[in-house]
């Protein structure tokens, strides 16, 4: 697959402080790419370098096959975490101005704005000032302004902050639709459940270094612990519990059942086979539950950071 964005060995220092150290990422075209990391890891610096707000000390960025140049500004839509709009400017005027800065003609910008405003049902805000709107309303405007010029690459830094669940869903659907229409999305957030839901690629940055990247499914495979959640209806719960405790690493599991039964998380050893376990369990009683435990993005995040430090 063709990469829309490649950052090669990017380093950036602010005085003595190293913000990025030889970080490389590859963002496949048409993907939703999760850029993750704890606070202060260097995500924002990397995003600013991609947006040509900050210049890297070394390394280079390739956008859609070309070295990053000034004219690529119109190919990128950026919703920063520290965002806002001119408080005393009217919504319409402001959106037009920002769209024109991204290279749209006034007429074209107006046409597209009306389309988007109708779509999100915010048409009657056109002549309101930003200071008259609520935070969520302003966020909607901000989202429209970010995507209006239909860029190849969209960068969202915490796009859902400030939205209620309904509007967050609305924006999520819009992001997915944009991806389906051919845009690529870089998505930076601390909400792991939305990474789980949306991203197909991730990169994890910690303390200025990239410590992990790849397809989300690959990463999960890498981090899976060969553990299973089991439920067995048996006459002698105690004996089976003892038996399994002797053979494997086990911990109590929580899930809902009607009958009383043994519920455990069983972690298999490196050479164990899940079929063997299942076979054994069926001899002990009626198996009601047998699920492979996949690591959540949250687990991966915490584990990777802990391993790194």
């Amino acid at each position: 697959m063709h990469n829309i964005l490649e950052a090669h060995t990017i380093s950036k220092k602010f005085g003595e402080f190293t913000a990025l150290n030889q970080v490389s990422i590859e963002v496949p075209k048409g993907s939703i790419f999760g850029l993750l990391g704890p606070n202060g890891a260097g995500k924002t610096t990397l995003i600013r370098i991609i947006n040509q707000i900050t210049m890297p000390d070394s390394g280079h960025v390739i956008l859609d096959g070309e070295p990053l140049k000034n004219h690529h500004i119109k190919d990128i839509g950026y919703l920063p975490e520290e965002r806002g709009l001119y408080k005393s400017m009217k919504v319409g005027e402001q959106a037009l101005y920002l769209a024109q800065l991204k290279g749209l003609s006034k007429a074209e910008a107006k046409k597209r704005l009306h389309y988007w405003f109708d779509r999100l049902e915010i048409g009657d805000w056109w002549n309101k000032k930003i200071q008259e709107l609520s935070k969520g309303m302003a966020q909607k405007i901000q989202f429209v302004v970010t995507v209006l010029h239909e860029p190849k690459l969209l960068i969202f830094d915490e796009p859902f902050s400030g939205f209620d669940p309904i509007n967050a869903n609305l924006i999520k659907d819009e992001i997915l639709r944009l991806r389906d229409n051919g845009s690529t999305v870089i998505f930076s957030t601390h909400r792991m459940e939305s990474v789980e839901e949306l991203c197909d690629h991730i990169a994890l940055i910690n303390k200025s270094n990239k410590i992990l990247d790849g397809k989300l499914t690959e990463v999960k495979r890498q981090f899976k612990s060969n553990a299973y959640e089991i439920g067995v209806k048996t006459a002698n719960i105690k004996a089976l519990h003892q038996d399994l405790t002797d053979k494997f690493e086990v911990s109590p599991a929580q899930f809902k059942t009607i009958d009383e039964q043994l519920k455990l998380n069983v972690k298999l050893g490196r050479n164990d086979n899940s079929n063997d376990l299942l076979r054994y369990l069926t001899t002990q009683g009626e198996v009601s539950h047998f699920v492979e435990l996949l690591p959540s993005t949250n687990d991966i995040f915490i584990k990777a950071i802990q391993n790194n430090s």
Binding site: N51, Q52, I53, I73, Y78, P80, R83, G84, Y86
Partner: peptide, 9 residues
Amino acid sequence: SRVIEVIIS
């Protein structure tokens, strides 16, 4: 107003 980062992108 935090609009600055949007502008300088």
